[in-house]
């Protein structure tokens, strides 16, 4: 197994909101997350919107302060870094934002943006060296003809690729990609997937945040499933569809499967909609879990937090009912 690039332990992120009518209200976006990313792998984080995927990405990269927990990146304590030291470290871990416009400056050409990034992160390069480098980057993302364009005149897929080129300019060790294909039509999506795969072959390490299972199957090595701020399952990507999933993952897979059947080319996007507020004591899925109800585990699931149970190499599930395979519902 290759070496660890990033390791997080016990990450907690709480948001507190004040309201005159309802008083102080606390949301746990991350509720005790442990995570490891190894050099050269693609780790996918899946879960529906609101599960804390994006927050996890931002907290790991020090874009949002964690409330508690530990983050180590290449041996450094990331939470201890401040100011300029942190800024310089940032070139090693980059994020592709879900909002494609966020990465790009509307008033700069593609070349100007890449030049600015190179000036910042490769200060030793002179103008000629930067120009050469920009040519290489644009070729890598297939945008050589668009160097003098501004974001307005680029298509959605092209903008993503500019964003990626900008990120590659820093030569990062880790890329966190938040929904890199959302909002793109099928053909352009394939281009982006293809690009991500090629980068993977050049041994880039990714954390892929997505609720697109099709994308995850294509490029991820390992998958973790998030629900309400917790990781409830970890599984090697090739074993997705295993009969011994967490009940929630099983439901996600079924939902994705259904939507794939309905529109064979359509997006296999998962969104099952788990209601109810957060319960901190027990399993986050207890209120909606059909397995807990069937097997009479409801009281226990509501009160005790389930610990991870290993089910196979690289596969664990945080569920009291995990010992037995979960039956497919008729």
């Amino acid at each position: 197994m290759s070496e660890l690039l990033l390791e997080a332990r016990g990450l907690v992120k709480r948001f507190r909101s004040q309201s005159l009518l309802r008083g102080s209200h606390e949301t746990r976006a991350l509720d005790g997350v442990d995570l490891q990313i190894r050099v050269g792998e693609v780790l996918a984080v899946i879960g529906e919107s609101g599960s804390g995927k994006t927050t996890l990405g931002k907290v790991l990269l020090r874009l949002t302060p964690a409330t508690a927990g530990e983050i180590r990146f290449g041996g450094n304590d990331l939470r201890a870094l401040r100011g300029k030291a942190l800024r310089l470290k940032r070139r090693e871990f980059q994020m592709v934002f879900q909002n494609q416009r966020a990465n790009l400056h509307p008033k700069m050409t593609v070349r100007q943006m890449l030049d600015e990034s190179l000036r910042l992160h490769r200060p030793k390069l002179d103008a000629e060296g930067r120009a050469e480098h920009i040519g290489g980057l644009l070729e890598r993302v297939g945008l050589s003809a668009k160097a003098e364009q501004r974001p307005e005149s680029l298509s959605g897929g092209e903008r993503r690729r500019v964003g990626l080129a900008r990120i590659l300019a820093t030569q990062p060790k880790l890329i966190v990609a938040d929904e890199p294909t959302s909002g793109l039509d099928a053909a352009i999506k394939l281009q982006i997937i293809d690009l991500l795969r090629r980068l993977k072959e050049s041994s880039m390490t990714y954390m892929l945040i997505s609720h697109d299972l099709g994308l995850v199957r294509r490029i991820a090595d390992r998958v973790v499933v998030m629900l309400k701020g917790r990781i409830i399952e970890e599984i090697p990507a090739e074993r997705l569809g295993d009969p011994r999933h967490h009940p929630y993952t099983a439901r996600l897979m079924r939902a994705a499967h259904l939507s794939e059947d309905h529109a064979s080319q359509g997006p296999s996007v998962i969104e099952v909609g788990v209601g109810g507020e957060q319960r901190h004591g027990g399993c986050v899925y207890a209120a909606d879990c059909p397995v807990a109800r069937e097997r009479g585990l409801l009281t226990r699931c509501r009160q005790e937090r389930p610990e991870p149970v290993a089910l196979g190499p690289g596969h664990w599930v945080a569920c009291f009912a995990s010992a037995d395979p979960i039956e497919e519902e008729p």
């Binding site: 874009l63 980059q94 994020m95 934002f97 909002n99 966020a102 008033k107 992160h121 820093t170």
Partner: peptide, 25 residues
Amino acid sequence: EDYILAHVAHGFSTTRILLYHILWL
């Protein structure tokens, strides 16, 4: 729009983002 955050993530200082990217440009 995550614009500022994306630029912080990229490694720019907030001073540069505010003064150059936003105010000037």
